[in-house]
Design a protein around this nucleic acid. Structure first.
Lengths: 226, 226
DNA sequence: CGATGTTTTGAAAGACTTCAAGACAGGTGG
DNA sequence: CCACCTGTCTTGAAGTCTTTCAAAACATCG
């Protein structure tokens, strides 16, 4: 599963590309049709408070969704990888801001009334209900992490989860920065860095580059995961 | 909205009462029928890992749902008050344990396959989808609280939310202990207590009894809420 | 190869927790 | 009806973990 890293930060944000052609790039397991959109690194896909016109499925790259407090503190609720659906909203506004982690492409789906959609009995509604459930499950597990785990446990849990999602392999290529990780785990960037260093010193992980991590001892990580 | 406090802890737990009569106590806004069950203070309604046979609606009293880490650290994901639906599960097991905060009565609904249920287009499925969405929304807001707010902000947010839910009044009668609050907010009982004391000293709240709180300055609380 | 943004590391400060004890409240029994 | 008893809550002091502030190391990009 490929992740698109930031190839360039100075690259001008491509104009929003919204083809109304019904079948621009049918992803293998998608029933309903949607247009695609390419999004540059750090570009916004939608903002908290926007009226939801679409929801999205990641094709390539990755996306963060987050909330802000009035003073700028940020909580990233989730990272969305290829295949993931995000931006589903029960109500009349988006409750998160969504931004691309690196250059990313997403498929758009028209966002009719979600209640109705979920009830129409079709295959897409099935996917939608499933996506919501997954989202709920993730949120609930994450509350346990945020409320009750210490820094090392948070980082270990995160690494294992990412490894399961991107490769199920020893090697994990992270699509996000330390700051993103920190804001996802309720820590500071320094604490994330120190935790990683600590795990490396114990021989649990290797850090060949900043964005790639080798899980040498998943057992040990699992122990920290609880 | 009344909350049933523990009237007695030595009272023997009433045997689980499961009437199979279709219409034991039709609550005003309920379409599907269910049996009722009375639950004593601290009695378990279902446990994490159980196969979900029912989901529930609180009639009187209140319920906590929580997860545990292997060493006993607890995260209460939500408190459920009269009218609230809880125990809905996407999968084959409950992901929380549910216990009564005080003596409580709940209505039971048979827990068929949730995916199917949510898709059958009926009124109950509408309620179910709505309950899931609310649950998701709450979880997402709570992640921001757990990950990014400090103790005083957490407590202020909690008090305002409870006030909106139980009375929308100055006076809030809490159905839960300080320990429950702490485990909901990702704090210790001592920190919760100190935060309340601090708010009281500033004149923002009054604490006439341990279980009742008067919100004297919602403005100030709102400021802390962000 | 230089420039810029990201990551790591160090030292000090701060917030929350832990441990311990005392105050309070509600329920029970005399 | 009062006093006691038990569990809950508050308060204090010390300790720990995480944050903050600061600077150096590292990577990436042009």
């Amino acid at each position: 599963m490929q992740t698109v890293h930031a190839s360039s930060i100075s690259q001008p944000a491509p104009a929003i590309l919204l083809r109304s052609v019904p079948l621009p790039r049918p992803s293998q397991d998608t029933v309903a049709l949607g247009a695609t959109r390419t999004v540059a690194k750090d570009e916004e896909i939608f903002a908290e408070g926007d009226r939801p016109a679409f929801f999205y499925k990641v094709v390539t790259g990755a996306v963060r969704t987050y909330k802000l407090l009035s003073d700028g503190r940020r909580q990233i609720d989730a990272f969305h990888l290829p295949g993931d659906i995000f931006g589903l909203e029960p109500g009349e506004e988006h409750r998160f801001t969504a931004e691309a982690l690196g250059d990313t492409t997403v498929v758009l789906y028209r966002h009719c009334n979600l209640g109705a959609l979920a009830l129409d009995g079709g295959e897409l509604s099935r996917q939608i209900v499933t996506a919501m459930m997954r989202s709920l499950e993730h949120a609930q597990n994450h509350m346990l992490l945020l409320g009750r785990k210490n820094a090392l446990e948070k980082v270990a849990t995160f690494l294992l989860a990412m490894s399961k999602r991107v490769s199920n392999d020893e090697q994990v290529d992270l699509p996000m920065s330390r700051l993103d990780i920190a804001d996802h785990l309720g820590l500071t960037i320094e604490t994330v860095s120190r935790s990683l260093t600590q795990l490396e010193r114990k021989g649990v992980i290797d850090l060949p580059t900043h964005r790639s991590i080798v899980l040498r001892d998943k057992e040990a990580l699992g122990q920290l995961d609880s």
